[in-house]
């Protein structure tokens, strides 16, 4: 395992790299609260170990090995933050510092158990994506609040600033992901006014820039995807929403459980043939024509 200091550096470079490449020594000095000469020494050492490329005077960026290690640290950090808020019930403004300590002393085994315990979480409490164990991180198309137009409804996804005072204030205002807000007005000085629930809140420009969001509608669509049963792929699960068509000979469909609210799983679905689904603990074959009339809502996290 790399030393704590190495990990800190890689993490800092990774974060800065989202905005500037290469990362200058002065930015790092600010983030890590270390003197410039000390930074330069450390960067040289990291370069000799193949973790970064460093050009004196310009700055540093991560090699693929360095990137991988950085993502590992970030994964552990964000998992710990989740653990601290969700399991231990700590405030979200206090967990960052604790996670900074814990992230360096976490063995791969602990990391795995932690991920298992937390289940399917994919973001930290502040809305940052957690890289998966293979080092993949979900990229989301987000914009700061200041970029949205007046009247737009949006969903808050991420707080892009590790500032305890800010976080604590947002907590009090109810502005935690995934809060849904609407832009009410924009002032010349960059401050904006948003509506959350029935409350109106004014946010200064700095705060508004730190809050990343995406349009609300899109979220709703991706959550509840309606389709005919015949379009569900094998392995996917869903819930029946409605049965279309007249009465006809539907009696048997009903008594075998094709009723709204029934959860089912698609087992076989090959072109033109009948579909095979599992519902109410049994496998049932249904002709394709009828499967076109059964409307289902697909589960998002289906395997």
């Amino acid at each position: 395992m790399d030393t704590e200091r190495t990990q800190e550096y890689l993490e800092a470079i990774y974060k800065r790299q989202q905005d500037e490449t290469p990362v200058s020594t002065s930015s790092l000095a600010e983030d890590l609260k270390v003197s410039q000469p000390a930074i330069t020494d450390m960067l040289r050492s990291l370069e000799s170990r193949g973790l970064i490329n460093y050009t004196p005077g310009k700055g540093a960026y991560l090699t693929s090995l360095g990137n991988e290690k950085a993502l590992g640290v970030i994964r552990r950090h964000r998992l710990w933050e989740r653990f601290l808020t969700d399991v231990l019930g700590m405030e979200w403004d206090k967990v960052h510092d604790q996670a900074c300590l814990l992230e360096h002393v976490t063995s791969p085994e602990v990391e795995e158990k932690l991920a298992d315990l937390l289940g399917n979480v994919d973001t930290c409490p502040h809305g940052h994506s957690i890289p998966d164990k293979d080092g993949h991180i979900k990229k989301e198309d987000l914009m700061p609040l200041t970029e949205f137009t007046l009247g737009e409804k949006l969903i808050l996804i991420r707080v892009n600033k590790e500032d305890a005072a800010l976080l604590s204030r947002l907590d009090r205002l109810g502005l935690q992901p995934p809060a849904v807000v609407r832009i009410i007005s924009k002032n010349k000085n960059g401050a904006i006014e948003v509506e959350i629930g029935s409350n109106r809140i004014e946010l200064d420009r700095e705060t508004a820039i730190a809050l990343l969001a995406r349009p609300y509608k899109e979220e709703k669509e991706s959550k509840a995807e309606e389709m005919p049963l015949s379009q569900l792929l094998p392995g996917q699960t869903g819930v029946i929403k409605a049965i279309e068509g007249g009465r006809g000979k539907l009696g048997r469909c009903f008594s075998l459980g094709f009723t709204p609210g029934t959860r089912l799983k698609m087992l076989e679905n090959y072109s033109r043939g009948p579909v095979l689904v599992k519902l109410h603990d049994t496998e049932v074959a249904l002709g394709r024509k009828m499967a076109n009339h059964v409307i289902v809502v697909k589960d998002n996290h289906g395997s």
């Binding site: 000979k249 048997r252 469909c253 075998l256 009948p274 095979l276 049994t282 496998e283 049932v284 074959a285 249904l286 002709g287 024509k289 009828m290």
Partner: peptide, 11 residues
Amino acid sequence: EEEVLIMELPL
């Protein structure tokens, strides 16, 4: 007309 297939496949 053709008829709709619906039947249980037992375990």
